[in-house]
Amino acid sequence: MKHKVKSLFAMILVCAVALCVGMAAAQSYPTKTVRLIIPFPPGGSNDIVGRFIATKLTERLGKQVVVDNRGGAGGVIGTEAAAKSEPDGYTLLIISSAYAINTSLYKLSYDPVKAFAPIAKLGTGPNVLAVYPGVPVNSVKELIALAKEKPGQLNFASAGVGSFQHLGSELFKSLTGADIGIVQFKGGGPAMIDVIGGHTQAALGSLIQFMPHIKSGKVKALGTGGAKRSVSLPDVPTIAEAGVAGYEANNWWGVLAPAGTPRPIIDRLYKEISAILSSPETQKLFGDQGAEVDKMTPAEFGPYIVVETAKWGKVIKEANIKAE
């Protein structure tokens, strides 16, 4: 009995110390360099978003936030590295829709729900249905009609198996029943080039990537994949509006920390990130690229990831996509 009391006391003491340390840590946080893991190689949208946030966080936190690119296996390697890191607030992770997709695609060594604590959702980049100008269609409905008229003759260019471009295309096919082939490329860039060259007829690609080419007329935008029309293309209907009810495919970015990171640190980070997202500079940067700032609190972001995971999990299962 005495023993139990003693151990109970010890436990309370430990908790109290931990709490104090936690609070003290949050007050003085950060005391050293913070590492932001980007689970993709330099150059992609995750990288650009991540580096931008790292630069702005450095200014606001007063300590260096360094970017650590750990690319590979569709983001799994970097995410695993982050999951294994100390939950002390000095390791953060940038994620995108790939995080939700990977859950259904790979056998992961981390639990995608429990291994991380959400900090904030940063923004959304819808996809766009872009068509080579030589293809005689001017709306989503006409494209579907053409696909039905010539089954198997049209192709979508995709950025690789399991990419959000690929899943967006599969979702389009399953909602419309159109017989359109999906041709895989190594990344979004080569896929886009093939559409601009007219070798594949269309792509459900990232609006960020296609934006300049839509403006210059190298491709036609038939619809965007967001729930609302894109601010950068107000004249282009959403794909759902244009006749594919229920279609929504967005890429998005967010920040996570390993689970167990002290609450005060997460709140502090959310506060700073929220301020960054509200600045006109950030709004302009996202807007120019065809993306939008889409702020979510830690409490909103967690459930959002779960919903996205379930949505893509269903598409992956229906289309029988395997990556292993």
Binding site: P42, G43, I48, M192, I208, K218, L285, Q289
Partner: peptide
């Protein structure tokens, strides 16, 4: 054309966009 021929070029395109310049023929 605003087409990235390599990863490095994709990064430079990204940089252009960050500077607020839409890459492409214009």
């Amino acid at each position: 054309l605003g087409i990235p021929a390599s990863g490095t070029m994709a990064l430079m395109l990204g940089a252009l966009m960050i500077y607020g310049i839409a890459p492409g023929p214009q």
